[in-house]
């Protein structure tokens, strides 16, 4: 009975937190101009569609093995779903200059994205090297290395892609500025 009450409190607590986040999110969006808001909306839409398609893919994979996928594999797949959907969101936003405050340069985010991608790449390599030292048969190799280490790979991929697109955007912007000066 007590656990059910706690579960209900947690559920409604989570709902309230989401409602607060949405209201605060609307206020913070006011910082962006109308074109940026339009593209941020599109980015959310594409990221949501990607997440739905990937979750459907995960269900198919799980069904393929008789709904018996190990829990860590499933969590790892979900991390990939989040990383890929978030990548779609940031790539679309960066490409359309939608996630920088008006007159702010995308360069400001480059240090952060490079730092995060380096950190997770190091963790990924460290994990691979640690597992490589152990004697693993093929099934453990598949389950442990592929799934456990791929989580760090997924987390490295997201900021790495953001860094690449910020650099491309910076080059494009420089060209555009030169064209405007002429």
């Amino acid at each position: 009975m007590i656990s059910q009450i706690i579960a209900i409190i947690i559920f409604y607590g989570a709902l309230t937190a989401i409602a607060i986040m949405i209201v605060k999110g609307k206020k913070s969006k006011e910082k962006y101009d109308e074109m940026q808001q339009k593209y941020i909306g599109n980015a959310y839409k594409y990221a949501y569609s990607t997440a739905m398609a990937l979750i459907f893919g995960c269900i198919i994979i799980d069904a393929n093995v008789g709904f018996n996928l190990p829990q860590y594999s499933l969590s790892s797949l979900l991390v990939w779903v989040c990383a890929i959907s978030f990548s779609v969101f940031i790539i679309y936003s960066i490409w359309h200059d939608a996630y920088f405050l008006p007159n702010q340069n995308c360069r400001n985010y480059l240090g952060l994205t490079i730092g995060l991608s380096v950190l997770y790449t190091v963790l990924f390599i460290k994990g691979l090297m640690k597992d490589y030292g152990n004697d693993l048969d093929m099934s453990t190799l598949y389950e442990i290395i592929l799934f456990r280490n791929s989580t760090n790979a997924a987390l490295a991929l997201c900021p790495a892609l953001a860094s690449v697109f910020i650099i491309i955007k910076m080059i494009k912007e420089k060209k555009e500025e030169a064209e405007n000066d002429n």
Binding site: Y32, D33, M35, Q36, P102, N103
Partner: peptide
């Protein structure tokens, strides 16, 4: 410059650039 006009209108430089290029259809307010 695009940047100066953007600051006067309280939007991003990219929005002014997109309007000039015909890539974005602004609202009446803008």
């Amino acid at each position: 410059s695009q940047d100066q006009l953007a600051k006067l209108c309280n939007v991003s430089r990219q929005t002014i650039s997109a309007i000039e290029k015909g890539e974005y259809n602004p609202t009446v307010k803008l």
